[in-house]
């Protein structure tokens, strides 16, 4: 089936991903791309706790994700690919040719960021970086849960 959702969410694996998206998409695997989590067994165990046993969780570094993206896209099962920040999303897009869309599911408040949506806070620089990603042919929308309207990038940057 392939990866049904590419998502930027600073909470990584959590309820909206596993239940909100996972149930209606009938997700069989989640790929969590994060260089720090990839190096920490403790963090990986923590994230696994939130996932039912029938869903595989794959922890990958950016380099590993780039190498395995085609494999995951050819997988007959439905999968979700998660990144926690814009840096990782940019690196994946830059180093692979297969990513055509990103869902912004949660970038929360931090010093210097301003509210763009209830669940999306960005600095002006981050907004510009999202626009540059879109300029590379990546469709970017914001949508926290499947029942919400996908909001085009132009409406929140």
């Amino acid at each position: 089936m392939s990866l049904a959702l590419y998502r930027i969410d600073d909470r990584l694996i959590h309820g909206q991903v596993v239940v909100g998206w996972g149930q209606p998409l009938d997700v069989a695997f989640i790929v969590l791309v994060d260089d720090e989590v990839r190096e920490s067994e403790w963090e990986q165990d923590l994230y696994r706790m939130g996932v039912p046993p029938q869903i595989d969780v794959i922890f990958a570094s950016v380099a590993e994700a780039v190498a395995r993206l085609d494999e995951w896209e050819r997988d007959r099962r439905v999968g979700i690919l998660l990144v926690g920040d814009l840096d990782t999303a940019e690196a994946l897009v830059a180093q692979s040719n297969g990513i055509r869309r990103f869902n912004v599911g949660g970038i929360h408040h931090r010093a210097g960021r301003s509210e763009r949506l209830r669940y999306v806070y960005l600095t002006d620089d981050e907004a510009s970086r999202l626009k540059r990603l879109a300029g590379r042919g990546v469709e970017i929308t914001a949508q926290d849960v499947p029942s919400a309207r996908p909001i085009p990038l132009g409406e929140f940057t």
Binding site: R11, H14, G15, V18, Y47, R48, G50, H108, R110, R118
Partner: peptide, 30 residues
């Protein structure tokens, strides 16, 4: 409305100095 950093800050403020038990709703997630 919390990312990990904001939730950690709320936790620090709530626990304060003393010993505590954190009661979480789900066995996974943020």
């Amino acid at each position: 409305g919390c990312g990990n950093d904001a939730l950690a800050e709320r936790l620090r403020d709530a626990v304060g100095a003393g010993p505590a038990v954190l009661f979480v709703d789900l066995p996974g997630g943020s």
